[in-house]
Amino acid sequence: MNAADRFDLGGGEPVITLRDVAKSYWREDLEIPVLQGIDLEIPVGAYIALMGPSGSGKTTLLNLVAGIDRPTGGSLEVCGYDLNDLDDDQLASWRNAHVGFIFQNYNLVPVLNAFENVELPLLLTGAGRGERRDRVEQALSLVNLTDRMRNYPRQLSGGQEQRVAIARAIVTDPDLLVADEPTGALDAKNAEEVLALMARLNTELGKTIVMVTHDPKAAHHARHQIHLEKGVLDRTVEVNR
């Protein structure tokens, strides 16, 4: 039984391919392995819940896939690019074009209103003023917050803030959405709303989503669950919805 069999996530072109990916930290001369021998193919349009105990390496793996961290071994091909081949600036443009980020703490810019927060990643794209406005409005209407456009983060509820953050993540129309505990700071009702929204982004817009979560209920919204255990892939579970 080889790795590909164990972690079969269904057909389709892979949008993420990890080969023998490893990540270690060094404390003095002591190597602390965090991820080891990760082989993984994730097809276009997948919705993955990355699960595992605290400290098992979920965030580390997500960061590698999203191109904000570098592996210490192996190769990652994401959205058609071998990330090891890109320098830091190229990687930054690559993220802007291909990855949308959703954080546990929303991480909106407090001095910008909802509209401006969503507009931020578009400032790098060279889109004109009018085009930016159209795309921001489109993204905000998708998360159902058109009427809160001029509100500042402190004038929004947690659930609304996270929806603005989601609008910001999708405004550049990336192929891949990464989310680290996106419902970790929300109550059950708001969490449910955000998860429903992410499911729609997956089914209706065809976004590939990798979501780290502790919460089995959240994981249930994904189509596949990948379990990490002490830095190695443990098992994959297909979710029956």
Partner: peptide, 16 residues
Amino acid sequence: TTEIAVFRAMGFSAGR
């Protein structure tokens, strides 16, 4: 610090 990291995650280069 966090905000700067968020900007960079979104694709703002260190130089920008």
